[in-house]
């Protein structure tokens, strides 16, 4: 399954509200994500970032427009796109231990036991949990569970990881470690990442590309940046700091606009 670009074209999404009215969440979102990119979507809470990710994942259809890999439209969930959820306790299978969770995808692909096991070991090692394969999710901390979810996704060898604020619920120290490690994993595996966050710092630390969204309803793309920041990325680098305040200004504008409405 070779492809070059993930395209979102003219994506709009309406929801029917409980009172029967129509909520226009997204309006005319157009984006291009190059293969291999670490593409981050940054926006204020409630702007429809997750809805956009769900459309790319194939969980929800767009009301107008749609997502496609090159010219193949996304029609439903597929093994080429795997989602990493923030709510990891519900995303993992609690009745399976860490290894069994990681082996789930290979098992669905009907791989033999030996190969499944090799894959599980490889990716558990990659996320630093090779000694914890026999543990069940309830025995693991939030950060460890998130590592398992990342290993589980990678073991299935998808082209794109769709990540919905994966580290937002973790404590600051765990979050920082995972961010650094995950960026390393990204550069080693060469996966395309479609990442959602409302954390400017995280976005600048991780991404090669950054799209800032406008506030909802009728949210769209405000501006897209290519981030050629000095490596290793650090908030003390002047270009990092300059970019931070530039993005912060954009977000503040959107928050003001939302309040004024």
């Amino acid at each position: 399954m070779s492809w070059r670009v993930l395209r979102l074209e003219g994506v709009g999404k309406d929801f029917t509200r409980a009172d029967g009215g129509v909520a226009e969440v997204l309006r005319d979102v157009t984006l291009t994500v190059e293969r291999g990119a670490f593409f981050t979507l940054l926006g204020p809470s409630g702007c429809g970032k997750s809805t956009l990710l769900n459309i790319v994942a194939g969980f929800e259809g767009a009301t107008t427009g749609g997502a496609s890999l090159d010219d193949r439209p996304v029609a439903g969930p597929g093994t080429d796109r795997t989602v990493i959820f923030q709510d990891v306790s519900n995303a993992l299978f609690p009745w399976m231990n860490a290894r069994e969770n990681v082996e789930f995808g290979p098992k669905m692909a009907r791989l033999g036991a030996v190969e499944r096991n090799e894959r599980a070991e490889k990716y558990l090692r990659l996320v630093g949990l090779d000694a914890d394969g026999g543990k069940f999710p309830f025995e693991l901390s939030g950060g460890m569970k998130q590592r398992i979810q990342i290993a589980r996704a990678l073991a299935n060898d998808p082209d794109i990881l769709l990540m919905d604020e994966p580290f937002a619920a973790l404590d600051a120290i765990t979050k920082k470690h995972l961010q650094v490690e995950f960026r390393k994993i990204w550069s080693e595996t060469g996966k395309t990442i479609f990442y959602i966050t409302h954390d400017i710092f995280e976005a600048l630390l991780l991404s090669t590309h950054l799209a800032v969204m406008t506030a909802g309803p009728k949210a769209g793309i405000k501006e897209v940046f290519q981030l050629d920041l000095e490596e290793p990325r650090s908030p003390s680098n002047p270009d990092f700091a300059a970019m931070y305040s530039r993005v912060e200004t954009l977000i503040d504008e959107e928050v003001q606009r939302m309040r004024a409405r």
């Binding site: 994942a57 969980f59 439903g76 093994t79 959820f85 519900n90 995303a91």
Partner: peptide, 14 residues
């Protein structure tokens, strides 16, 4: 949980 079903679909469950 809906996301558990979605996770399984992403991982290739029919």
């Amino acid at each position: 949980p809906q996301i558990r079903v979605r996770a399984a679909l992403c991982l290739g469950a029919r």
